[in-house]
């Protein structure tokens, strides 16, 4: 920093910190509670209603054991990882390619296409025609059915266009004058500057893929191809008593199992986010003044 911090500045920091810590606590306490429930034996859970502090010797990892030893889980995890990575990559490629021309203010089709895209955020034909399209394309029981119907999200496209438009126009102009083609400008100049938005939108797409559920129920009937969310939910619904439950089928205490499933599905995202985070701060004041 070039300037020394005054008293007001310091107070400002203190206030910011206090607010952020309070918000974080409001979020972390329920999350911590979920984590604790996932290791609380049922009898303890019922006596206490779940507590924030479970003694280590009372913890049970039965829920995790039951989920992780399921023969279906590793495969389903692989399917989800595949859909998420390949799907997100496709999403990003098509969205970027579409956003770039639309971000140019002198692009003749900009406005009609923009409006046409906006139109799709308001109107849709419903689930049945989409199902027919997917079936007609031969995508039933094909991973394509989990990636193609949501290839471009109108919201993400608009956000990306807005970001491109905010990039300094001079750099692009200079490159164009130097004889670079549109493709070269996008690849060598625009994209390197767009890491924050690629990370953000990539995250949005990835999370949508990771959580996709009913698509998979509808389009995928082959058990080998079911993604994680479907498999986890079928493991969880085993606790529901219906007339065909075997009398001595091992039923886990529902809460423990449910929360263990929540922790297991959320955990991978916990690791992905920090990886993307560094792109959010690239090029900001904070990055440059800190030294």
């Amino acid at each position: 920093m070039t300037r020394s911090m005054g008293f007001g500045e310091k107070m400002f920091d203190v206030v910011v910190w206090i607010i952020l810590i309070l918000v974080t606590l409001a979020v972390i306490i329920p999350l911590w509670y979920l984590l604790m429930v996932s290791v609380t034996p049922f009898d303890l859970w019922t006596r206490t209603g779940g507590t924030l502090f479970v003694a280590p010797w009372q913890m049970t990892f039965e829920g995790y054991r039951q989920l992780l030893t399921s023969p279906r889980l590793p495969r389903a995890f692989g399917v989800s990882v595949f859909i998420t990575t390949v799907g997100t990559l496709l999403n990003l490629i098509v969205t970027t390619l579409m956003a770039y021309p639309l971000s140019k203010s002198n692009f003749p089709l900009r406005k009609p296409i923009l409006l046409a895209v906006l139109f799709t955020t308001l109107f849709s034909g419903g689930m049945v025609p989409t199902y027919l399209v997917v079936r007609q394309l031969g995508l039933l029981n094909n991973y394509g059915s989990l990636m193609l119907p949501g290839l471009v999200s109108a919201f993400n496209l608009l956000v990306m266009i807005a970001f491109f438009r905010n990039l300094p126009a001079e750099i692009e102009e200079a490159a164009t004058i130097d004889g670079a083609s549109d493709w070269q400008v996008l690849w060598h100049i625009v994209l390197p500057l767009s890491k924050p938005i690629l990370a953000t939108i990539g995250l949005f797409y990835a999370v949508a893929h990771w959580n996709s559920f009913f698509d998979a129920v509808l389009y995928i009937s082959n058990a080998e191809m079911q993604p994680l969310q479907v498999v986890l939910r079928s493991i969880l619904s085993a606790g529901n008593v219906n007339e065909y439950v075997d009398p001595d089928a091992a039923l886990m205490p529902q809460e423990t199992l449910r929360m263990a499933a929540v922790v297991l599905t959320t955990l991978p995202l916990l690791f992905v986010y920090p990886l993307l985070q560094k792109h959010f701060t690239a090029g900001t004041l904070l990055g440059s003044v800190k030294e």
Binding site: I93, K104, G125, V128, V133, L148, S181
Partner: peptide, 27 residues
């Protein structure tokens, strides 16, 4: 002049026509 830009647009436009506009007949 800028045919590359139009080529870039193509996959997205095809997607919107196929998966967003075509099913609208259902409405």
């Amino acid at each position: 002049k800028h045919y590359i830009l139009y080529l870039m647009l193509l996959p997205g436009v095809v997607y919107f026509l196929l998966f967003r506009y075509f099913p609208m007949y259902g409405a």
